[in-house]
Nucleic acid binder design. Structure first.
Lengths: 203, 203
DNA sequence: CGACTTCCATAACGAGCGGTATATAATAGG
DNA sequence: CCTATTATATACCGCTCGTTATGGAAGTCG
């Protein structure tokens, strides 16, 4: 999978890097939300003009979906890595501590891009909401299965409801992202995580 | 404090009820968020024209703040009632069960108006965010004090961090409102509450 | 009955939105 | 060199936004 140094396409070559421009667009969407990010915001941050944007990405909605793909691949990778942890408790701890790392990071916007786009987006953005909710449901399903495996392996009490526990863990994570977006300090978020883990059921 | 049946004002009397119109506006803001609710949405739901709205409420932002006042007074009253419960556990249970009742009610929009307005609002609505966050902070302070009282009264273990527990309870509530807004069923939300309460620290 | 005051209805304002038509510049193949 | 193809740059489109000016309708006061 070598990058072709010679473009082998006919016309004038584009003068910007698509991946880099997409990363800038992600940053804008993350900071301002789908509706709040105007095409002017986006093109200025991406360093390209509107026709270039439309030629390369389609339209605003398509750009957002591609940005969301990048966001999940880069920033939400921890939701997959967490499942590999040996015990349910460690899964939860990995989930929450990584959640704090990602959603209260120094150089990135605070809060969760998916959450802020699943709420509050208003007019035509129903497809955005649906996309985010669909992705979230997939992640939640994996978490339920992981907890049922943990029950079988004995590191979760048998009386625990896996779906309830997943919903619980997800709620904590959502609370983390909400509070991070509202300006909570990292110390406050870590205290929240510590408190949550102190209450986590032990086998 | 009698209602004056004779207006005693000079000009033409207004033809709509301000309180009722505000209630309609609240419903629209709750369902669509600050940015998502257009003046046309609002005036249509309120049954009045734009000049009437501006004369009675000032502008969109002032209308929102008044709607938020009404929302807190009517729908978030439970956050104050919860503090009166005799034990910290009952405070938490009252908080969470009322949260489900309010944010997944039949006739009202699902999710929390304050939360959806504190996230994602975009351009000029910074003052909205600040207002919501300020109100939230006041509620959170009361909860911390209630938990410290509970520690003194012995119905919370002494090693518990009151701020951490408040942040935890708030995160669950925020998770409830997020999941309610995303279409979670009432049964799912109640399962989340049951799981959370099962993990609540006992004295 | 005016005079005055307040409210309602229509229509319009400027600004910003997402999206695009047009013209020009840069590369490839013939 | 010429044509075809693609990217860029400028300017603009129609639309909706929040907000307001204007004219008339509906009241109280003298």
């Amino acid at each position: 999978m070598e990058v072709e140094t010679v473009p082998a396409v006919k016309g004038r070559p584009r003068e910007f890097c698509v991946d880099q421009a997409l990363a800038q667009a992600l940053h804008v969407f993350w900071a301002k939300g789908y509706d709040g990010a105007s095409m002017t915001d986006l093109t200025e941050a991406m360093g390209i003009t509107k026709p270039s944007l439309y030629a390369a990405f389609g339209n605003k909605e398509a750009l957002f979906h591609k940005a969301l793909d990048l966001y999940e691949a880069e920033k939400l990778e921890y939701t997959r890595a967490a499942l590999q942890q040996p015990t349910a408790r460690k899964v939860a701890e990995y989930y929450l501590r990584s959640g704090v790392d990602v959603h209260a990071a120094e150089g990135d916007p605070h809060g969760c891009m998916g959450l802020m786009s699943s709420l509050a987006c208003s007019p035509e953005a129903e497809s955005i909401k649906a996309d985010v909710i669909r992705r979230r449901a997939s992640s939640q399903r994996a978490l339920v299965e992981r907890f049922e495996q943990a029950k079988r392996e004995g590191d979760l009490p048998a009386h625990i409801d896996a779906e309830g526990l997943m919903s619980f863990l997800y709620a904590i994570l959502q609370g983390i992202t909400v509070q991070a977006g509202a300006g909570a300090t990292r110390a406050e978020l870590e205290k929240l995580v510590d408190t949550s883990l102190a209450l986590w059921p032990s086998a």
